[in-house]
């Protein structure tokens, strides 16, 4: 194709896209600047993307003097690691069984799984179940209810369906059983799709707050960063979202809940920022594939 000239259309379009980039990034930069600014000074307003009175006090409060926030940080990491690992093992295993069309119960298991995408018990019956299982204020409530998602299993199975079967066949002739084939042959071939699903699961675990709110409010040890952030947000909202009234009674020190809120926001965003751009290639294909299949 020959090189075309840049028209007015191209120039306007480029400016428009730069505008989109700015409105997407500005809030994050603004919050970063506020989190690095002296809380008393922030109350005067006028902070945009650069701190005026630089301080690390808000972060020191989280990682140094405040035990509960530090605990929340570690609990967020713990539930993300454990939840992602268990979720990956469960969905990959189930996807492999479902990719084996010769399995005698293939139809039944597939039906039970896919049906869950269309019927769900709803909030109250699920709450009653969790209560009866004794998972209230228990770490298990972060792991068990989210173990399998039908959507993820279907994405992995679609990927497995497109793998060449030659390796598997020859392993079978050498007498390998299905479990060995799964761990030695299928898993290494599925790493791209496993990376995608791991990203989805990790983001879901890291971002969860409602399960803490509903099921684990009574346990200090089970609080997470997102839940602590939600609580600060809720307190500010009681005074109709008016942040000034909070800042009017600014604490003598350098920090206040509003500035700590910004620091938590940054801490909760950075891990995501570090991971997702590198998996972009995989999740774009995964998502497109999943959408086409369903």
């Amino acid at each position: 194709m020959q090189k075309r000239k840049w028209t007015t259309f191209d120039i306007i379009l480029t400016i428009f896209m730069l505008f989109i980039v700015v409105i997407t990034l500005y809030p994050f930069l603004n919050i970063l600047a506020i989190s690095l600014n002296n809380a008393v000074d922030t109350a005067k307003g006028g902070i945009h993307i650069w701190p005026r009175d630089f301080t690390l006090a808000n972060y020191q409060e989280i990682f140094g003097s405040n035990d509960r926030l530090l605990q929340a940080f570690f609990m967020s990491i713990l539930r993300t690691v454990v939840g992602t690992l268990t979720g990956i093992i469960a969905s990959t295993m189930l996807a492999y069984v479902l990719s084996r069309r010769d399995f005698v119960f293939n139809g039944l298991v597939g039906f039970l799984l896919v049906l869950t995408m269309f019927v769900s018990g709803g909030l109250i019956p699920e709450y009653m179940l969790i209560r009866q299982l004794g998972l209230i204020n228990d770490f298990g409530v972060y792991i068990w209810p989210m173990l399998i998602s039908a959507f993820n299993v279907i994405i992995i199975r679609s990927f497995m369906d497109n793998l060449p079967t030659a390796l598997e066949e020859s392993a079978k002739m050498d007498g390998a059983n299905d479990f060995v084939i799964f761990t030695r042959i299928i898993i290494p071939l599925c790493l791209p799709v496993i990376a995608t699903i791991a990203l989805f699961l990790a983001v879901m675990q890291w971002n969860s707050w409602f399960d803490t709110y509903l099921y684990a409010r009574g346990s200090e040890a089970l609080t997470t960063l997102q839940f602590e952030l939600m609580k600060i947000l809720d307190n500010a909202n009681i005074s109709s979202g008016d942040i000034t009234s909070q800042n009017a009674e600014v604490i003598a020190g350098q920090t206040n809940p509003q500035s700590i809120k910004m620091a938590i926001t940054i801490i909760a965003t950075v891990p995501i920022l570090m991971v997702y751009p590198f998996l972009q290639k995989y999740f774009v294909t995964g998502l497109t594939l999943g959408a086409v299949k369903s």
């Binding site: 989109i20 980039v21 997407t24 990034l25 809030p27 994050f28 603004n30 919050i31 506020i34 983001v203 890291w206 971002n207 969860s208 707050w209 997102q226 952030l229 939600m230 947000l233 500010a236 909202n237 979202g241 942040i243 809120k261 910004m262 926001t265 909760a268 965003t269 995501i272 920022l273 997702y276 972009q280």
Partner: peptide, 19 residues
């Protein structure tokens, strides 16, 4: 960059919107 807000939680987005 346009994917970034999708990956952050609604708690964070609510904080951003309110701010």
């Amino acid at each position: 960059i346009s994917y970034l807000p999708h990956f952050v939680s609604w708690v964070i987005v609510a904080n951003i919107v309110i701010t």
